[in-house]
Structures are given as C-alpha cells and as structure tokens.
Nucleic acid binder design. Structure first.
Lengths: 206, 206
DNA sequence: TTGGATATTGCCCTTGGGTCCAACAGCGTC
DNA sequence: GACGCTGTTGGACCCAAGGGCAATATCCAA
C-alpha cells in the first residue's frame, strides 16, 4: 500500500474578521485540513511555526502590516510558505503583483468554496514539493561546504567530464594527487559514481 | 566584445483599436523593438510567424476570439510566445487566470509607458530563454529517437551509474555486448563522457 | 613546539571503460 | 534469396579510475 498522507497539512488563516476566520476554518476543517487562526499579520509572524508544512490564506486588508507586506516578509524566509490572497476590494494591479510574486491564487470575497479548496489543495502540494526541494538543496550545500578548496576545484572539473590527467595539468599537479582529492571529494559528497555526482550538482545548479 | 543583440525582438500587437495600435507601436519602436500590428486574433493567428522570436501584447476585448482564447491557442503550439494582456475593463478573476496561465503581465488601459516597456523587456527575455530551452530539448529528443531499444535500455542504466557488468546481469547478456551498445549510444547521443550524458538527460527530464 | 588539517607525490595492483577487428543469427524488405 | 538493420559474442589491447601503503611539506592553532 502506498504511503498515506497521515499528517494533515495546516492552513494558516490570517484575517481580522472573526466571522471570516470561523467560516474558512469550518470549511477547510471539513476537507481534512488543520487550521490555525490569526487576526493580524504581526500575530501570525510571531506565533506560527515556519517549519510546519502547509499554506497560508491571507486577507489583503489587514490592520498594521497588510497582506502584501506580510507575504513579502514570508518570502524572505525560505522555504516560503505558499500563499492564497483574499480581498474584499482588490485591484487588478494588486492581484497581478501578487501572482508575479508567486502567490498561488488571489480570490475575492465572498469566496467560492470550491475555488478556495482547490487553491488550498494546490498550495499544500506546492509546499510539499518546495520543502522537499529545499531539503535536498540544503543537504547538497552542506556537503559542498565540507569540501576543501582543492577538492571543490577538482569536483568542478570532474562534473565537466575531464579526466584525472587533464585536471592534473590544469591544476599544475600530478595525476595521483588529483585521484586523492577526487576520492575524498566523492566520499564527502556521499556519492559512489560520477553519474550520481553530476546529477545532484546539475539539479542543484538549475 | 560580447555578442550584440543585432536582430531586434518583434512585438506582436493585437488590438481592434487602430489608435491603440499606433500608440503602442510608436512607443515600442522608440525603444528599439520591431512591431507588427494585427486588428484581430484571427488575423494574428493566420499571419504571424511562430518561429520568429518576440512577445505578444494582447487586448482582452477583441471581436471574435478574445484575448484569453487567443492565448489558449498560442499555448498549444510550443514554444509558446510570452504574452502581455491589456484590458480596458478587466476583472480580478480574469487577470489572475491569465497570470496562472503564464502571462508575463496584465495591464489596464490607459497603460503606463514604463509598465509596458518593462513587461515587453521581460517577455522578450523569457522568449529567448524559452526558445533556447526548447531547441535543446528538441535536439535531445531527436538523438534519443535515433537510439535502438537496446541502446536506450543501456543508456538508462548508464545514467543511473551502473557498471557494465551490472547492466549485463540485468539485461541477461554479456558485458562485452553492453560495451558495444554503450559505445554506439554515446556516439548517437553525441557525448564523449558519462558526465555530459548525465547532464543533458537530467536537464531534459527536469 | 607540537599536533592536526591540508596538499602533495610515488609505487603498485586491480578493476572498469573504450576501441579496434571479426563473426554469427534473426528479421524484415526489396 | 540477397541485403540491411539489429542484437549478440569473442579476443586483444590500451587507457582510466580506484585503492592501499608510505612519505614529505606547509600552515595554523593550541
């Protein structure tokens, strides 16, 4: 049997209207999502757990920091949680900017239940993907950071397909030395074949 | 000296208002873009050259096929030309859908010159990138298509880092045979090292 | 000053990969 | 039936890569 999604994704609701929070929470809970309610941007920023997977539903018109500003703050701390904007009186320019910034959706109140649920579903999926990608990226960076300058240098030559002899000539050292660096580099990068090394580096840089 | 961009990008203007076409054409020509003017979606679809690089500026409210429908048609023929929407009386839902479909920008009339120029610049750059990526993808696909079934099979094992001996065991043949297929595969894929092969396949699949 | 990290090199041996030439069998086409 | 494509295998040879063991040199910090 395939792995079930046992831990329900969390939807962080940020709206200064208590009745909206209640309605959204009721709707999404009915679809199996865990909901957390915040009445302001500051409240959300200070209390939410950035490490927990899920998405955020933001009212644009908030007292203090508004929805757009809140999203800007969120984007500064990767992996950024996917956002869905809600607004009562939004503009086209605002919605377009939000989408260009990477928002999943931008909905107007009163919101259609289906629209919101679909957006939340897409957002949570993107969050899973983004967190996986971020974890991989971080892992690769840690391994890269453990390399010495020479090992890193050798690695860049190896991933471009150069032979030990050529690398040695480029670096002005002997082939045997390249072999030593190369061996240590492969161990630190936790790969056993050149194919694996090239794959993780290529994906990391793209 | 680095290569200059000698061939100016073309901006395809689609609007049923002649005065709008003139104004946009004048503005963009002044910024070094070549402009082509079309008064309807059908006119554009039947006459434009999909192979020429550039972007399209679409009025949403067009007689016959409207701007959204036109963009849907464009997306069916990759590499899709990047689009910038213009509208006199658009809705948030419309702009959000357009952005979700991959539009570069969605501007309201009367449009700010800077907004349009920036959008066109971004769109043309994305078109260049997209066309380069598309050409590379197509090239790889042609080479893959030239492989025999066996060669393709061997290739999938090679890019996962398996040794000839292991591949031979998996395929129920002798190592020597694997070497032959491998050699022919490398020649057809036009690569000289495993690193190059892994890179193009990894980028092609991602 | 001494120990640890890093870089360097040599020698030797094993394994793996690349490339010649040559050959045979199945399968479909002309 | 001859021909071409594909898949298969053999042998021989060379080069590349990996690993073990040993040694030297430099630099920095405790």
């Amino acid at each position: 049997m395939p792995a079930m999604n046992d831990t329900p994704a969390t939807v962080y609701l940020v709206d200064d209207d208590e009745s909206v929070l209640s309605a959204l929470s009721r709707l999404l809970t009915g679809y199996g999502y865990r909901c957390e309610r915040y009445s302001s941007a500051e409240d959300f920023l200070s209390k939410h757990n950035p490490a927990a997977p899920g998405c955020v539903v933001l009212d644009v018109e908030l007292p203090g920091l508004n929805g757009f500003a809140l999203y800007d703050r969120l984007r500064e701390m990767p992996p950024c949680r996917p956002a869905i904007f809600l607004t009562g009186r939004g503009t086209i320019a605002g919605s377009v900017n939000a989408m260009k910034s990477g928002a999943i959706d931008f909905l107007t109140k009163p919101v259609e239940a289906d629209d919101l649920v679909n957006a939340v579903k897409a957002a949570c999926q993107r969050d899973i993907d983004a967190r996986n990608a971020f974890a991989r990226k971080k892992s690769v960076e840690e391994r890269l950071a453990s390399l010495t300058a020479r090992e890193l240098e050798v690695m860049t030559h190896v991933v471009t397909g150069r032979m030990n002899k050529q690398i040695a000539a480029d670096l002005g050292i002997v082939e045997k030395t390249v072999k030593v660096h190369r061996c240590r580099m492969m161990t630190k990068m936790e790969v056993r074949t050149v194919a694996d090394l090239v794959r993780i580096i290529t994906l990391h840089e793209s």
